[in-house]
Design a protein around this nucleic acid. Sequence first.
DNA 1: GTTTAACCCTGCACGC
DNA 2: TGCGTGCAGGGTTAAA
Length: 285
Amino acid sequence: MPELPEVEVIRRDLEKEVVGRKVADVEVFRMRTIRRHPNKAHFKNALVGRKISSVGRRGKYLILKLDKGSSKSDKASVLVIHLGMSGRLLREKSKKAPTLPHTQVVIVFTQGGQLRFVDPRQFGEMFVTSVDELDGIEELAHLGFDPLEDNIPWTEFGRLLTQRKTKLKALLMDQQFVSGIGNIYSDEILFEAGLRYDRRSDTLSSQEIRRLARAMQEVLQEAVKQRGSTLEDEQFVDVYGEPGNFQSVAQVYQRAGQPCSRCRTPIERARFQGRHTWYCPQCQS
DNA sequence: GTTTAACCCTGCACGC
DNA sequence: TGCGTGCAGGGTTAAA
């Protein structure tokens, strides 16, 4: 599942591959991916003729800025992309490259090359909106701080934590509290910080708050450096189709029964809010 | 305010 | 072997 590090890897790849390119054509295979648009033509018309001027990220959302079209009435707009659970963005140099199963949208550039959105489970989505209306999109407007971009002081982080009375894993995965963290990285961050998934957020000492703030930065930065996590059952790849490597340095995620790297106690798996969580029963409290 | 459950969809494991 | 059923998986939202 793409979380902040995977989305950031894609963002950096797209910066190299699509900025400056102009959209020549758009093919939509299923409506579900562009469900915020009334029909395929509406989505296509919003993109054709526009040039991509930059690629940004908000939490797990990619924001591709589009320059103004040729008509005077055209407003500056953005293409917003969420990869959902299984979405992939792939750059294809040739239009002759075979179309993978579950390809939902293909964007063709005037300079040649294509960007393809492949999403088997169809939880991902794409939509075009004007820059003015972007802040009115609820999912984006309600996003919490970005753990890598917004360098919030640990004291402020502590204030936010103690304002809430909820279990740490739930809070880390709450996009309205902090944006971009999902199941993999919440487990890894909590291990790094020595805190249990079900520890209440308002019971942390200042030392523990600092440890958690530091773990969040370190784990996410390392994951970006490793170009994300590609697990057996997930299959994240970058825009060149290459897998990430963070899974090989992960300490607890999907490692039940294996000895903890710090204390050799076997890693345990528990069920938390309908999902699995992995932790060291000795090192995390 | 916090927790739980359901939904979205596909692929896969399992049992008959 | 082939088919049908049930469920995992993450994010979001509605309901409890």
